[in-house]
């Protein structure tokens, strides 16, 4: 091992994390599902399953299908709802020395504001991640996350409603992610996380029906990693706020690519399904990388892309 302790810590929007590894919304439940595999204290941050004002049943099954080096999901944001989350899920999450970032979504700007207001001041919440990238969320026929003006309006609303650090999660299903990122930054977001899933589809050729009951679903996993990386890199050219990179990160090498490209932290999701030990392996891999290069802090790696 090393003679000196390596410093993997990062600060995102005032949230100090002991390392840059975050678990992505929707892949870690409310922090309990991986309790037998992972000590939640080792994580940089936990992003909870997205919550809405009222409990949501989500979509009919089938909800998932495997695709080449990836998977499509159409869970439909099933969740226990705001009040149940605060009452029944937060006490468990509060016990760890790991920042809890609450992912949330609404179907109108008013919903987002109500959620942000209520979550602000709840003990143990370190920050918010606004999901403006769900295809189900529409106002005036346009998803918030695909239109710079709408993205700006919803961010502005949330910004006024909370003093908590605000991360806005962006969808890749846009022509110019940099433009969306810029308008979200200008509307007051403290950080961005990207990318959410790509909309995809699979057909069962025996039945000639879509595999998913929802017809389309969100593609995640290593299949989208190069696209995610490109979008993170592109976004960083347009904004000055920190960017959290995600999309198909399976191992330390993948994570390092995002960090070198300039992401200050990263989230893992699908990797957990395949390998619940992934957080340990990724953190060890990042430490080895620093050691091999004789570096003492992760900050010496972030944004070091040579062009």
């Amino acid at each position: 091992m090393t003679d000196k302790a390596l410093d993997l810590s990062v600060t995102i929007a005032g949230i100090r994390m002991k390392n840059p590894l975050m678990v992505a919304s929707g892949t870690f439940g409310y922090g309990e599902a991986y309790a037998s595999f992972i000590d939640n204290n080792i994580l940089g941050a936990i992003v909870t399953k997205g919550i809405s004002l009222e409990p949501s049943q989500g979509n009919l099954p089938p909800r998932i299908v495997e695709t080449p080096s990836g998977m499509l999901n159409a869970i439909g944001l099933q969740n226990v709802g705001l009040e149940c989350f605060i009452k029944e899920k937060m006490p468990y999450l509060r016990q760890f020395a790991t920042p809890v970032i609450v992912n949330f979504y609404g179907t109108s700007i008013a919903d987002y504001i109500k959620l942000a207001e209520r979550l602000t001041g709840v003990d143990g919440i370190a920050g918010l991640e606004a999901n403006i990238s769900c295809p189900n969320i529409k106002e005036g026929g346009i998803s918030f996350g695909t239109d710079p003006a709408m993205a700006s309006r919803v961010t502005e609303g949330i910004r006024k409603a909370t003093t908590l650090p605000l991360i806005v999660k962006l969808t890749p299903n846009v022509t110019d992610i940099g433009a969306i990122a810029k308008s979200v930054q200008d509307a007051g977001a403290d950080a961005l996380s990207l990318i959410n899933t790509f909309t995809g589809m699979a057909v069962d050729v025996d039945t000639c029906k879509p595999v998913l009951a929802n017809i389309t679903g969100g593609l995640s996993g290593p299949a989208i990693r190069p696209l995610a990386l490109r979008m993170v890199w592109e976004t960083l050219k347009r904004v000055s706020i920190p960017v959290i990179g995600l999309g198909g990160i399976m191992n330390a090498q993948d994570a390092l690519q995002f960090l070198i490209a300039g992401a200050r932290a990263f989230e893992i999701g699908t990797a957990l399904f395949v390998n619940p030990q992934a957080p340990y392996e990724i953190l060890n891999g990042i430490e080895s990388y620093l050691q091999k290069r004789n570096l003492s802090a992760l900050s010496e790696v972030i944004g070091t892309l040579q062009q």
């Binding site: 599902a33 991986y34 089938p62 998932i64 399904f273």
Partner: peptide
């Protein structure tokens, strides 16, 4: 039986319709 992604209760991918919800 169901197709599953995580198998541990995290992803909500394998739900079945039950009385009182999925």
């Amino acid at each position: 039986e169901a197709h599953m992604a995580c198998g541990v209760g995290a992803c909500l991918g394998c739900v079945v319709e039950a009385r009182g919800g999925f």
